[in-house]
Design a protein around this nucleic acid. Sequence first.
RNA 1: GCCCGGGUGGUGGAAUGGUAGACACGCAGGACUUAAAAUCCUGUGACUGUAGAGGUCGUACGGGUUCGAGCCCCGUCCCGGGCACCA
Length: 1043
Amino acid sequence: MEYRPGEIEPKWRQWWKDNKTYQVKNNTEKPKYYILDMFPYPSGVGLHVGHPLGYIASDIVARYKRLRGYNVLHPMGYDSFGLPAEQYAIQTGIHPAESTKINLERYREQLDNIGFSFDWDREVRTSDPQFYKWTQWIFMQLFNHYYDKTSDKALPISDLVKHFEANGNAGIVAVCEEETPEFTGSEWNAMTEKEQLKMLLCYRLTFPGEAYANWCPALGTVLSNDEVKDGVSERGGHPVERKLMLQWNMRITAYADRLLEGLNTIDWPDSIKEQQRYWIGKSVGASVKFEVENHSDKKIEVFTTRVDTIYGVTFLVLAPEHEWVGALTHSAQRIEIEGYIKWAAARSEIDRMSEVKKVTGAFTGSYAINPFNGERIPIWIADYVLAGYGTGAVMAVPSGDQRDWSFANHFKLPVVPILDAQKNLEIAADPTKEGRYINSGIINGMTYTEAVPTLTAWMESKKIGKAKTQFKLRDAIFSRQRYWGEPVPAYWNDGLPYLIDTKDLPLVLPKVDKYLPTESGEPPLGRASNWRYQPAGSDAKFEYELSTMPGWAGSSWYFYRYMDPHNDNEFCGKDALDYWQDVDFYIGGSEHATGHLLYSRFWNNFMFDLGLVKNREFAKKLVNQGMIQGRSNFVYRAKEQFFEEYLMLKVLEPFFAEVGPIVISESDSEEGYNYDFAFEANNLVIEVTSRKQIEKIERIRQTATADGKRLLLLTTEELTASINDPEKISEKVKAALNSREPYIETKDQPAVEQLFVSHSLLYKYSPEAFTKLHVDVNIVENDVLNIEKTQTNPHFLNANFKLDPNGQYTCSFEVEKMSKTKYNVVNPDDIIAQYGVDCFRMFEMFLGPITDAKPWNTQGISGVSGFLRKFWGLFFDSKGQFNLSDEPANKEELKILHTCIKRVTEDLERMSMNTCVSHFMIATNELRRLNSNNKSALEALVIMMLPFAPHVAEELWGMMGQSGSVCDASWPILDETHLKKDSINYPIQINGKLRATLELPVDTSASDAEQAALALEQVKKWLEGNTPKKVVFIPNRMINIVV
RNA sequence: GCCCGGGUGGUGGAAUGGUAGACACGCAGGACUUAAAAUCCUGUGACUGUAGAGGUCGUACGGGUUCGAGCCCCGUCCCGGGCACCA
């Protein structure tokens, strides 16, 4: 019987569904194992081959652990709130819940096709009110708690109030706003209720506050740092600016130390831990206060990690945004300072990044006094000092810090050496801590380790400074001016926020007429009618908070919901939590290093403080699966033959007829000559990444328009605007078509050398041009373009043509991230249809180590496909009849089997799936060679194959007469005795180089082995009659003779 | 610039400090076939060679430790990912 995956695979999926094979119970005597995938955001494009990589790996581990006797929790769900659905809603008016549901069903269908062992009864969706009810509930807990530094945990606000009533805020060490004033118990009691509530906001773990935010005017929302890339929004590429706004914040900084320490307790990749450590950015140092001449009310506080350099301070630098800049500016300097501030504010993030080396700044005219030596030092402003870090002011030590040195050098400020070991200060700063201090008052002659405590003690006694630890980590902004997110369960009364009653959870997203900000600039929820809260026992209604929660809210705790997904009374029941505890193994992409993976740890720590969860860390072990990259194929051509025009026209041709206007946007990033293609609305958008392209485009345009066709060029800004307002674009198109004078931007630039056009795109839209192209292709070296294959599926082409000296067409490829706009996305459905799911699963694993990034390449899939057929063939005789021998397995069979058991087991434990596949191949090839059809051996192999190829395993299991699912079988037990060899083939090395091999019985003694080795002809030849200096003998391994 | 990974045949990749290149793809030759596909067998790091013997070289490059290094240490180059003036 032939192996027909197309028949057996759907059959078993249905069987699993009917028999609830993957249903997981919370109450069992078995040990638990919780293996979790990062849940996907269900985007409109569906799964590509990169998605399942991690899911397949986790599914293999889940199935393996189950065979090992664990009760395995392996759930899946959806991170279903998010910006793309909202953008789609803005464009189409379709409710995000609707489009999300459609996407989600597509995902589910694709996931089902891959044969995962998910318990779908436990599915969660963050946008489901029954889920976000608990996201809101956790938010309320954060609001109702503060962070107590003494016990180092979160405590109820009510405890804090009691303390305030008795003692004010003296004697309480809590994490709070920097400017929180001190007050006594009676002062507290004398405050109005409103004043008290306002004061409490300084302590709550989530609170509304003014903060600089990444405001994106085009999207009408605030973005998190990870959503901003190079000064533009990650999605859409819209400009982003820094803006002071009233936002909900999460006091994640309270947990900075614990988040840092916790990293030492978890088995996560070092790169992730490093990124988190850097992000938290703990630096230990001191803060020092500098008095300002003629401003007795102002003391400039600076933070430094090198307090030992205090005598080398020759000026202070404030951030241009520092609040005292205005007051400290002398009238003579006012024009210059104001000019500088204006200039600095106008600098975009990109400017700042690209001009790091440029020294800029301005002198305020004021002077500060160095508290250690009383010296008068000028106060400058410069934008290398960041307003958001530390105090927004630094003490500049040009001899020890390169930035300070450059600044001093540029503005001719003095450089004072402070250590005798400092060298070449006329060329650069020397940050050394070696040597002994000079010019340094009380620490003269001391070393670094002596100086620091001396200085700290001195300044603490004089109350001019103190030891301080500073974190880079900022409080996390939690508000989004968007529709498609969790509503914040709070309302406003007289400028103060109040929580709604727990009984009123979930606070369900209201309907709105449009998913855009209101006319007055309020978030979309401002459009909802009667979006007001009536507290119990109140006649009045109050306006709800209008912002929604960010994407990371739901994902910060979802792993607990899987444990008890249908619980209406708790986010997760106590019994379920007691049993499942935490995630044993978490698999997902490393791109979440400082986002999801940090916020989740923060929430988890908080929930741990409240006794809501069992462990400080939510995931014991984390593995990052590598990205599967796409392969984009390109066609090149030398410039002088005007190939580009030909190609472009061929590509564009169909569109002139079909879609009307063609939009070409221009962005002047770096070099590179890509035309990127994408569809926006109904237009073909060609993004030109170099100004040099404009001329080319213009020539094409002229050719095109001569034929009565139209082409329109737009700048990036216009394109951006068009996405938000489709009306605008059509106006522009109309105008351009009427005038027949499209907007063109040109520059005197040399013509491009070559041009890349996506290969597959060309095929897709102009098969004719594609065919033409390959007729005279000159094929070089081994990689041959298989035109047959290519024509059936342009994605699978394997072209690697070298540039031909005769100017022939040449092809090449680049490996890049899979993305829709690059036309290099490979959908798993096609492969599954051709080879079957089991083959797809095994092939993805066979591609290489799970953690490596690798380009998707179907070369080699035939090897896995062939292996599965061979494996299947082991169960059938030459007549095609299912035929197994019931004899006990012989020695050779046992050796093959147990070698396989040993290797696969070991490799599974270390997540080396690719080598597991090759072990199966070896076992299969060897059994075939023996013509073995031993039932007991094959039964064990079927069990081991289950995690990798579940359908074929179930089918063969059934054919072997077993009832029930092979999922409930037990992993074969390794018996090392079958691996024992009688003899060892020793490598004989001379001076570490292999010269011969020698077969010797196992456990041959050192002297016998030595004797036998020295007797070999090959060895004698190398010895040339000399006695060896030394013989190294490693039992059962090797012999090395040193001559 | 800083921090983390990595660099092995034509390709994807194997290799607790112990016979480098497992397994697979590709390629070449052969069997079967009217033919093709499929399948099976053999070969396949480079150079050299008396050619199924033997030898030399070989894991980015230069050093080192070791009886022995792809693996450990020092330096250099290149590629991938992350961060952005953090005082």
